[in-house]
């Protein structure tokens, strides 16, 4: 085990460096820090605790096997892990072979939400912004992100024109961005 543990991004980086040299204690520490994030994302996508647990295992094992896939210069570890988990869970949801390698996930200077308090605040803020969106816009964004649907699948499901779906999704993401810039 690494003790005492520094907090935040530098601690994440030290732990990921530990993985590269095969430190199983570092793996346990990273799991303790981030398993609830990974599990929450997987469960949000899959809605099934067993499948979510499988994705949790898969994501952390991939991290163990390929720790160098995380590039600290290009994003926070928490964000990177959350996005990987979402992608893997979507693959599982759609019963397809994993399409997204963890090496492919690049978040350039992703939001620094390292602390639990800050993360909880940010999550609440995201949910607040989503809550202010028109139901059709929120729904389009959620179908794309949490269900992995393409724009044409969303258009088919909602009966709305493709252009409307595209506009709603982009406007939703921009609204999120503005909330965190302001």
């Amino acid at each position: 085990m690494l003790s005492p543990q520094p907090q935040g991004i530098s601690a994440d980086l030290a732990l990921v460096t530990g993985l590269k040299s095969g430190d199983q204690g570092a793996m346990a520490e990273l799991y303790d820090r981030y398993s609830s994030v990974v599990y929450a994302v997987a469960l949000r996508v899959l809605g099934d605790t067993g499948e979510a647990e499988d994705v949790l295992q898969e994501v952390f094992l991939q991290l163990w096997r390929r720790p160098s896939a995380f590039d600290a210069a290009r994003g926070s570890f928490r964000s990177w892990l959350a996005v990987i988990t979402r992608n893997r869970a979507i693959d599982s949801l759609r019963k397809r072979r994993p399409e997204t390698d963890i090496d492919d996930v690049v978040l350039s200077v992703a939001p620094d939400l390292a602390g639990d308090v800050e993360r909880a605040r940010a999550a609440e803020k995201v949910r607040g912004v989503m809550g202010t969106m028109a139901p059709a816009q929120r729904s389009a964004l959620e179908m794309a992100y949490w269900e992995g649907m393409s724009h044409s699948e969303i258009a088919d499901k909602t009966g709305e024109p493709l252009g409307t779906v595209k506009t709603r999704i982009r406007a939703g993401l921009i609204a999120l961005r503005k909330a965190f810039q302001g």
Binding site: S35, S36, V37, V38, Y39, A40, V41, L43, R44, A52, E53, L56, G75, R78, S79, A82, V83, T85, R86, L107, S108, V109, A110, P111, L113, R119, A122, A123, V126, R127, M130, L141, Y145, W146, L173, I174, L176, R177, F180
Partner: peptide
């Protein structure tokens, strides 16, 4: 980065 915010908004029980 904007989509990463969506991922981080997920909340739920511990594994």
């Amino acid at each position: 980065r904007d989509t990463a915010l969506l991922a981080l908004s997920a909340a739920g029980p511990r594994p």
